[in-house]
Design a binder for these strands. Structure first.
Lengths: 336, 336
DNA sequence: AAAATGTTTGAAATGCATTTCATTTAGGTG
DNA sequence: CACCTAAATGAAATGCATTTCAAACATTTT
């Protein structure tokens, strides 16, 4: 409210009877300044309510200590993504960045083109990028990475990917789910999800290889679902039940939320889960264990994920080129 | 990668054969520059891959066009908050800020003291604050607001609050839940949640006044729950069932997640929902409608929330002092 | 054609901190 | 005590864009 001029480093210098560079050094913990002087500066700064102007600092240092995190809130113009998994991922990243004193610039670009990201870099809005979910943006990400932009991506690693990817082993996840359903004796398994997403495609192929290996007489069907909402999954389930002669006895969904919507539809259609049909989700979101019935799912170590993403990006910023990272992936067998 | 010197405004000026101020004006859309010149500058800037250095801009303009959003990820050192409601709220805020070309600095302060916030302001890291959830930070927020910091808070408005609060009408929410349970004929209603949170306390008192008004012979009990996780709610439910002679026939939970955990515990204890006990949650998170059974809950208009929070803050930054805002609150009756 | 007005443009000052390099001070040695 | 080295400090240059104020140019008006 008081509109008096902001306190600057010069003021602190004057009050502490030292020069500006000394204040600068004292505040950034340089070993070049005597203990004594440093304390004096620090206490003056504190009593004046002074904090280094970050913008001047960033301008001068050419380093922002800020990481842009992209969350594609509204992919597929289908309203907000609200998979709690993404939230947990964000929380993990936020914490890991906090531990390294990096600021987090949250960006949910409207136009999903390289430019939106490129501009952040050109304008020195951040030092690097953490992209949560590659989705259908692979081409764009390839382009962006080709410019040499420092980025890490949460998603599925293609060997060919020109950027560092961190993610669970989606193929393994699919196998684990497949083995689980096959062990239960499922004959007609249906996969639910948008296979054009690389991660999800891999989960499907994992499921298929599990089936292939068993030489079982298993039918694997797939429902293409280009929308991640509960509504869409619920409706897709109903449509499928309407159309199909033999109802499925096993379902593997691209996510826990999808699995829940399917279970809900099955219940409304008078089917029993897991009596009539077994269901496996993906992610092990917090609510999975408390769903009715408790949901069997593939857990990704989300907490590790945030730390790994940040660690890799920091190495990139230090000029290294870390390999992609794989996050622990395991089946959590519950009632479905 | 190429470590050539960054493109600056001087370069653009030279290439477009104009002066620096003209470039500055052209890029920020000033009407002072001739259409002709402006286009020339714009095209040069584009082909050079130039974007104004935000840090220099912020330094000079003394305005950051950045809003700090605080998300208390790990309140109560109990691990991450992962209520999807918070995620939706964040998504709404993110979108509303995007629409106004404001950047979003996500902060999850470790030390929950004024200083963490104050420092952001002193260092010109953001122009203002959106605090998502007042939780137990009311005192701190009062202090912070007293310094004249521009902030809006998602929470429950006390008349006395020295800052602008936006939130649903929690008392009304409580009444609606109460009326619903009483209409169902519940006799032994238990409230679940940490009443020391103002929002939650109000929901409880709303429930009580609904009961009072009916002159019913209703017993209202309450389970103090100082932890927002599913686990904690599930355990609290079990403890309560162990200890109580007459089992409750109505539950009103502080959130949908809490309600789900309770339903899960009831189910595991062999109780039927809604046969034996009716349950009302709060927030209407996306999964509520697909829970088994579909969850009755109090919906807050989350999308409006984000817009209102941002709009109020912008007015504050313009020197106004907007009143607190109330978000639409309604009962969504489903099966429980 | 000169005067008056309005429109574009540019030179220079400014915002604030960091860094280089030179200088001073303190400490150690013969 | 003179001399050298190491430690601490400071003057000035620098990073990049915005803004003020004055100058140049274009257009009307008399």
């Amino acid at each position: 409210m008081t509109d008096r001029r902001a306190v600057t480093m010069d003021d602190i210098a004057r009050l502490a009877k030292v020069s500006k560079p000394t204040v600068s050094r004292a505040l950034s913990g340089s070993p070049l300044v005597k203990e004594d002087t440093k304390n004096r500066v620090l206490s003056v700064a504190h009593e004046q309510g002074y904090a280094v102007n970050r913008n001047a600092q960033k301008l001068r240092r050419k380093r922002t200590n800020t990481i842009a995190v992209s969350l594609d809130f509204r992919s597929h113009q289908q309203g907000h993504i609200s998979d709690p998994f993404m939230f947990d991922l964000l929380a993990g990243v936020s914490e890991a960045l906090g531990d390294r004193n990096q600021d987090l610039l949250l960006c949910a670009p409207n136009h999903n083109d390289t430019d939106a990201f490129q501009k952040i870099l050109w304008s020195r809005g951040s030092d690097g990028f953490i992209i949560l979910g590659q989705g259908h943006r692979e081409e764009m990400l390839n382009e962006f990475a080709a410019t040499g932009a420092p980025l890490v991506v949460w998603g599925a690693g293609a060997e060919s990917a020109p950027y560092c990817v961190v993610g669970s082993d989606n193929h393994l996840g699919g196998r684990l789910a497949g083995d689980y359903l096959l062990d239960k004796g499922c004959q007609r398994i249906v996969f639910v999800g948008d296979r054009s997403f690389r991660e999800i495609g891999l989960r499907f192929s994992g499921l298929c290889s599990a089936a292939d290996e068993r030489h079982h007489d298993v039918k694997i069907d797939s429902i293409e679902l280009h929308n991640f909402s509960y509504e869409a999954a619920y409706e897709a389930a109903n449509r499928y039940l309407d159309v199909t002669e033999l109802r499925p006895d096993g379902v593997f969904a691209f996510s826990d939320t999808g699995a829940m919507a399917f279970i809900s539809a099955f219940r409304d259609a008078g089917m029993d889960v897991p009596g009539d049909v077994s269901v496996v989700g993906y992610n092990d979101i917090a609510s999975a264990a408390y769903f009715t019935p408790p949901l069997t799912t593939i857990r990704q170590d989300i907490h590790q994920a945030g730390r790994v993403l940040v660690a890799k990006l920091m190495r990139i910023l230090d000029g290294e080129t870390p390999s992609s990272g794989v996050i622990k992936t395991e089946l959590i067998a519950r009632e479905t």
